[in-house]
Design a protein around this nucleic acid. Structure first.
Lengths: 219, 219
DNA sequence: ATAAATTTTTAGGTTTGCCTAAATTAATTT
DNA sequence: AAATTAATTTAGGCAAACCTAAAAATTTAT
């Protein structure tokens, strides 16, 4: 894979996040996300088009080519691996990692990233619960959602705890709620949005506040 | 401390390495080290002068101001901590770390570097044997030199092994030459530059080739 | 379907960090 | 000390990535 400037990388990454199955990304949309002006977007789109990283026809918006998607995924891979490293190894708070990873992701050295991946034991999700692309750009498809958004009776697996404070971790410990455990929501009480859940064949009730910090794999 | 561009950081770092007590750094010298042309050096020196990071009078060469030195040391700190991380944690070979650290050193986030330092247990030397500045810019003064450069009868301590190949490490193992050991050169045979050394009160002879890979702390 | 509003593009600047070529200053020879 | 050589600086340009203001295309509203 060729080398890209920090700017190009940020454009590609952001287009990846904005584009959906049916809708092209628009100039204004991208300009806003990148805190730049629409004219700058047009400039860059011309450039990325000649590099065959985006499909772009004037006034029609744009989307990544397969090659562009590959590059974007490799940048997202770097970003999320660094986030994981920062939280797991350097003990950054989960809400501080993004900003630092924004810088680290632009250090492009394949061996570095693959060795980092190995060192971290090939994590599947970053501290925000987002999936980390593997060396081939593949990642877990289901988006992480928190328990309070999980449909009733849908089996899921705990994959991440947000707001990892002392207090919360202790609380989870007491209730024996651990990462990896299978979980299922039996009932939702609309009075206080508390949940009755089934965990290891035991029923227990948890508050909405707690549920919002427990993330599960959602096919 | 303010923020500097990657270019500015490379200039400051390189001036630091080139400047000596009595000699200013010259335009050509710096141009060669940075693989750039003399005219570019002059451009940047004007800029760094207005930023009060270098002292510079046309045609007189330049040197860092105390502020410039402080910045340079913080960049060198980043560089060497990353080198240590790459070798120690990610198991990079010692001769591969420099290139990657050249990129990582420009990620400027104080908390990141200080947490990395802590995570690595505050190492004093990088994999090349160069001292790592601490959080205040202080570092071990003695420069590491290899055994073949150590004066006769000068007591020293092994602090680093270069060229850490399987073969060499085995060889050192057999001779019981370990990091941290006290060592002293008794004689230097000019025929082949082999050395007679004293280690743990035992005398042994080692080749110049081996000596060049054993680094010691040189007051 | 036309006018108005919005979006996007074009045209022409700016800054950073580099370049070449020419001019200037300093150092070295003779 | 004058002349030659070497080092440094100046002048003027270039590309990347941004900008503003104006023009063009598209969309929305009447």
């Amino acid at each position: 894979m060729l080398n890209f400037s920090t700017s190009e990388e940020n454009y590609l990454k952001t287009i990846f996040h904005l584009q959906t199955k049916d809708d092209n990304v628009t100039t204004n949309e991208l300009a806003e996300k990148l805190h730049t002006k629409p004219a700058s977007i047009t400039d860059m789109m011309k450039k990325l088009k000649t590099r065959k990283l985006v499909n772009y026809q004037p006034y029609q918006g744009f989307r990544l080519t397969p090659e562009g998607k590959k590059v974007a995924l490799s940048i997202i891979r770097r970003h999320r691996l660094w986030e994981y490293f920062l939280a797991e190894k350097l003990k950054f708070n989960w809400d501080e990692v993004h900003e630092v990873a924004e810088q680290l992701e632009h250090v492009s050295n394949k061996k570095l990233i693959d060795k980092l991946d190995e060192y971290l034991a090939f994590p599947k999700f970053d501290p925000h619960g987002d999936p980390i692309p593997d060396i081939n750009g593949k990642m877990e498809t289901g988006k992480q959602i928190n328990l309070s958004g999980l449909p009733i009776n849908k089996q899921a697996k705990i994959c991440f705890i947000a707001n990892q404070t002392e207090l919360l971790m202790e609380h989870l410990n007491e209730k024996k709620i651990n990462i990896g455990a299978s979980i299922l929501v039996k009932r939702r009480f609309s009075f206080d949005e508390s949940l009755e859940i089934k965990l290891d064949n035991k029923l227990l009730t948890i508050s909405d506040q707690l549920a919002k910090n427990i993330f599960v794999n959602h096919g």
